[in-house]
Amino acid sequence: MSDHKRVRIMPCLDMRAGRVVKGIHFVDIRDAGDPVACARAYVEAGADELALLDITATVESRGTLLDVVQRVAEATTIPFSVGGGIGDRASAEAVFEAGANRVSIASAAFRKPELVGELVQAFGSDKVIVAIDADRNPAMPSGYEVYVDGGRTATGTDALEWARRVDEAGVGTILPTSKAGDGARTGYDLPLIRALASNLSADIVASGGAGELPHFLDAVQAGATVLLAASVFHFNVIAIPELKDYLRKHGVPVSPADDR
């Protein structure tokens, strides 16, 4: 038995105002926009962890999000993270109280870097994921620039430099999403994953661009230990058990899909 770390499959539910933006199409869910039904379907399909992302994250949607978090926590048996609009310790605490296992922060972390250390101190390094939206920019030392506000605002900061600060603050998991690849299904941005995985001690989540089975293997070989995808799972381009079989056949340790 290998004692190497198992790679985790993490479907992501993109939500707007408490509804899943892209409903799941691989099972007969009466309401494909219901986050609880989608979360349960992914758990039963063999997901290792779930990501809930509130892509609107307005102040008005806070109550709705907490209600969704609570219902997902009640209906599932695997760890899940919640991201979108978490800007301080109190909002993170509310999400944990509702039953989330980890929080994911992006723009707020960049604007208030001290928040990262504060959350790690308060909740533990394993409870905090820092998401970094990045795009290629040859003027940056690593070739990648950090973007905030859901990828709309360039910051002029090198992505590896920012990731290093996050890593040094003790964050257990870093989730870089390449603007170029997101939703395109042309493959994860491998140089970005490689740059972070080879320089940092945090777990690196591959995110943005998965479209075919080999893309997932490429990400593992680039150093990712968590594989996030949304649309390929939503639209049943790839089923989770099929992905796990594929990775296992290529020597990547994964958890069985049938014990959830």
Binding site: H4, K5, R6, R8, D48, D126, G172, A202, D203
Partner: peptide
């Protein structure tokens, strides 16, 4: 190599 600390994930 291959064993990030802390261990976060599923194991036998």
């Amino acid at each position: 190599p291959g064993a990030k600390i802390p261990q976060i994930g599923w194991n036998q």
